[in-house]
Design a protein around this nucleic acid. Structure first.
Length: 281
DNA sequence: CTAGGATCCTGTCAGC
DNA sequence: TGCTGACAGGATCCTA
């Protein structure tokens, strides 16, 4: 899915387009994609907790939206604004086969598309958002976390590979497969390193690298429609702008020129520079 | 308690 | 061409 920077990009974008609009109709095309009772209200606020989005409505209810792997939010009004998992749906005629929920608004339509159906929209009373099991478990985002806090958690999971540990949203919040790989490359640590082998200084470096990698992505707009589909309709790859290792297997490392390789860690495709990233044991 | 693998689901691509 | 298995920007559940 969309990782923290993409979700933040969606939040900022939708803030311009859907805020203060009333949801006049909700069509649920896939039952699995909508949990709870749909209710109509005006969107008065959009918040983000880690990779989850919250639409606060004026009727005391909120919509918790999690895009997971392949979710997308595509607003179609006077202009189109699309973000989330990059695909041709950003410029497709909607609804289509992958549309799961349609929110009809006063001045446009918000489509929730999700190829794999792992994502969902859930209604929760606004005051109970922070009691939601997923929200409750989230750790701090890297810019709010101290090296000591992370170090203690790494010791608690000392036998797990560091990549698995930093993908765990209850340990550090916001990283997904792309930014985990980019962060570990930035600090020169091999993803298979044992979490317990990282020093306090390593933890400090890791926090700063994670902050930097995600902040730079937010600044460049994450995987928005603008960067993904160019004006002429051809694909652009926003990853090219900053990815040092992700999906760059076979290409030279920007630091040393060695070939980037792809391995499997914690059940996920993982990209490394075998020369720059040392394995701590 | 942690660690690791299976699982949810659809679609695409590489390899026979 | 058609089939098969692997894999995918996430998180949870189950088992050891």
């Amino acid at each position: 899915m969309p990782e923290l920077p993409e979700v933040e990009t969606i939040r900022r974008g939708l803030n311009k387009f859907v805020i203060n609009q009333k949801i006049t109709k909700i069509d649920i095309l896939c039952d699995k994609s909508f949990q709870g009772t749909p209710n109509l209200g005006r969107i008065i606020n959009i918040r983000r907790f880690g990779k989850a989005l919250i639409f606060d409505l004026d009727n005391g209810c909120s919509l918790l939206i999690h895009l997971r792997m392949t979710g997308q939010l595509i607003y179609d009004g006077k202009e189109r604004y699309a973000a989330g998992h990059p695909s041709d749906n950003f410029v497709a005629k909607l609804p289509n086969k992958q549309t799961r929920v349609i929110l009809t608004l006063e001045d446009g339509t918000l489509f929730f598309n999700d190829q794999r159906k792992f994502g969902f929209i859930k209604t929760i009373p606004t005051p109970k958002i922070e009691n939601d099991a997923f929200i409750k478990k989230l750790a701090k985002e890297p810019w709010a976390m101290t090296a000591e806090e992370l170090y203690v958690k790494l010791q608690k999971h000392k036998n797990s590979p560091i990549k698995a540990t930093i993908l765990d949203q209850s340990i550090i919040c916001g990283l997904g497969n792309i930014y985990a790989d980019e962060t570990l490359f930035a600090v020169g640590i091999h993803p298979e390193s044992k979490s317990g082998a990282l020093s306090l200084e390593d933890a400090d470096n890791l926090i700063h690298a994670a902050s930097d990698v995600m902040q730079r992505s937010i600044d460049s707009g994450g995987s928005t429609m603008k960067t993904y589909v160019k004006a002429d309709g051809t694909r652009g790859d926003y990853l090219d702008k900053f990815a040092q290792v992700f999906r760059r297997e076979g290409k030279p490392c920007s630091k040393c020129g060695a070939k980037i390789t792809k391995i499997r860690v914690a059940g996920r495709g993982t990209h490394i520079c075998p020369h720059c990233q040392r394995k701590l044991v």
